[in-house]
Simulated scan of single mutants.
Amino acid sequence: MGHHAVAVRRIDLGYFIRPAVETGGPEPRVEAVLAYLVRHPDGLLLFDTGIGAADPETEAHYRPCRRPLPEALAAAGVTPADIDLVVNCHLHFDHCGGNPLFPGTPIVAQTAELAAARGGGHTFEELIDFPGVRYEEVSGEAELWPGIRVVPTPGHTDGHQSLVVRRDDGIALVLAGQAHDTAAEYGYALLARRAAGEGVEPPLPAYRPWLDRLAAFDPRRVLFAHDASVWEPTGPAAG
């Protein structure tokens, strides 16, 4: 494959501490903040941009440890100016924090998500409407570049979206963002869907209807914003 083959690289942008009140357990949990750099013949795409500046209350609640986006991109041989397209899975401050580094660069967001972000109480407005911001709003599925498609995966927020990346060899990867918090949760949901499809008697857990759409791409890897684990199918895989 040539220099311009489609490739995905994970970018580590730090971590935050999710307090016990949010983990459902006795202890807090330290969670990764991961972005993804997609190289494509049409350019460089960045999926999520890290943890933004927050107010003192939010800082104290989540205690984020940020890795500056320019430093993280430099490790991949890239500068913010090299990015042709930004996609945010959603617009909470730990996913769009680096967006103000991209004036003039199109930022792809679901219309519902942008409306929620501008409606107050969702995020920090200076991360949403900054000098030079340029949104490319989509409602539902959209092909951004050949083989690169956003798919709505609502749940964490109403306007949450994931990115499907079709490689040159035909294999699909899904950048799921926070569609599920962990690879394990995604795997459990897929198994719930399978059990329901095979007629297993209830009770069975509910699963998101968009799982049908993601499964239709037959992804070989599903990657997440807050979990460095990767979901892979258990059956025979090509590649």
Rank of each mutant, 00 (worst) to 15 (best):
A20K: 13
Y188D: 14
P205T: 04
A216M: 04
G159R: 05
T157F: 03
P106A: 04
Y15S: 15
A206E: 14
Y62K: 13
R29K: 14
A54P: 08
G147T: 03
P56Q: 02
L46S: 05
E57G: 08
E201G: 10
H156I: 05
E113D: 11
P106E: 01
V230S: 10
P41K: 12
E185A: 15
P209K: 08
V78R: 08
A76G: 11
A196D: 05
L46M: 08
A192V: 10
H40W: 02
R134H: 10
G120F: 03
C89G: 11
N88Y: 01
Q161I: 08
G43N: 01
L13Y: 00
S139I: 00
A237V: 10
P209I: 00
G2N: 15
I171G: 14
E185L: 12
A228L: 11
P70R: 11
R193I: 03
E141M: 02
A179W: 00
L223F: 13
L13P: 02
A225P: 06
L211V: 09
L175Y: 02
E232S: 14
D129W: 05
N88R: 02
Q178L: 14
R221Y: 13
L101Y: 10
V133P: 03
A112N: 04
G14D: 02
P26H: 11
F102W: 13
Q178N: 15
L163R: 00
V200N: 10
A20D: 13
A53Y: 07
G147P: 06
V33A: 06
T79D: 13
G77I: 09
A192I: 01
P236E: 14
P26K: 10
L13N: 11
G25S: 12
Q178P: 11
A238V: 14
P202T: 05
Y62R: 13
R9M: 10
E141N: 02
E22K: 15
L73S: 00
G77C: 02
